[in-house]
Simulated scan of single mutants.
Amino acid sequence: MLDNLYELRAFLTVAQAGSFTKAAAQLGVSASALSHSIRKLEEQLDIKLFNRTTRSIATTDAGEQLFHHLQPLFESIEHNVNALSEFRNTLKGRLRINGNDHAFAFVLWDKLIAFSRQYPEVELELVSETKFVDIVAGRFDAGIRLGADVAQDMIAVRLSDKMQMAVVATPDYLADHGTPKNVDDLKQHNCLLIRLQSTDSIMQWEFRPNPKSQQPIRFQPRGRLTFNNSHLITRAVKDGQGLAWLPIDSVQAELERGELVEVLNKYAISYDGYHLYYPNRRQNSPLFKALVEALRV
């Protein structure tokens, strides 16, 4: 019989992080103390759970089996403990949400801040990435993506209306380089690029040739500056470095002040809005229900 559950929690954290250093930081202990706990667990079970080298750590077959069996059990314990907060007329717990910069900063920010103020004992961790992640394997409670990108086996709740894209530049840039009249004209311009984390490729720009068209025009932009997030692209376009393809609401204030100008607006494309998605085991948690109600349209 195990003395306590700490070693099992430590095991789950190390297996998920793939590193003693990262896991120790999450647990608030030293790497050596964490390594000692894992050794103790392996001795109790008389089974090797990790293959260790000087540079990496990975679960053995036995460790992988234990991880997949224990993870949902610990999540269930955590959710049931958090559910007791309803008897205190408040909510308490921790929520990890995966999304992207635009969703967090421009679509959901006010709602997330209002939720945080309403439930001051709830810890929110917002992880912004451009790549698609497995929210279950990544131990996220939920993810936020455009509707078309949500996996079919997930429950999805709409969070926003359609997202409209826009090609923008400064008036000075357009005065110096000309204003593109059609998509093909973009070949003559310096486009500000974003590299996708998931594929390591440059993101294509998409346009709608006419309102009734179902098939978008895909354009492969070229330029001298490449970024991995939209914040830096916004900064670069405001500094007159080229044309940027961005969600229009992320530059709405600059457009209204005349700092930026939209071009090719007759070709602008819209995408299905953002959705919160999550596995069905999350839906019965009072804390998670409160989050869904706070964010949904």
Rank of each mutant, 00 (worst) to 15 (best):
L70E: 07
I97E: 04
G28L: 10
L193F: 02
S213C: 15
I38M: 07
N182M: 12
E262A: 14
R257W: 05
S250F: 06
V29Y: 11
E123V: 12
L95C: 12
N51R: 14
R94C: 06
N82V: 00
R296V: 03
P286R: 04
L255C: 03
E293K: 14
K48D: 09
V150F: 01
T234G: 02
K212Q: 11
T60S: 12
V157H: 13
D249Y: 00
V122G: 02
S285H: 04
A169F: 01
D239V: 00
Q252T: 02
L232N: 14
S85W: 02
L66G: 06
K212P: 00
G99F: 04
Q241A: 06
M203K: 13
N228F: 02
L49I: 11
E123K: 05
L159E: 07
G273N: 10
A23K: 03
D134E: 08
K92Y: 05
P221M: 03
L124R: 12
A290Q: 04
F288A: 10
D141M: 10
F132D: 07
S285C: 14
A58I: 00
N265D: 13
P279Q: 05
Q220D: 14
E129K: 07
D249G: 00
L2I: 13
S116K: 15
I233P: 05
T170L: 08
R235L: 08
E42D: 08
S250V: 01
K212E: 15
I144W: 10
L112I: 14
I144A: 12
L95Y: 11
P221E: 07
K92V: 08
H102F: 08
L295Q: 09
P120I: 03
L260P: 04
H275I: 01
N190Q: 11
E262T: 07
D185C: 09
D101H: 07
S160A: 02
I194H: 05
H275S: 00
Q152K: 14
R195V: 09
R117I: 11
D249Q: 14
D161K: 15
P247H: 04
S160T: 14
V292L: 03
I144K: 12
A83N: 08
A83T: 06
R296C: 05
R139H: 11
E256W: 06
L291E: 02
A166Q: 03
E129L: 07
A151V: 01
F288P: 06
K40P: 01
E123F: 10
M154R: 13
Y267R: 12
A148V: 01
R281G: 00
V150I: 15
R195M: 10
D46R: 12
L66K: 09
L186N: 05
S19R: 11
L287S: 09
T234M: 00
E64R: 09
Y278Q: 03
G240K: 06
V297Y: 03
K238R: 15
F50H: 06
G242L: 08
E125C: 00
P211L: 12
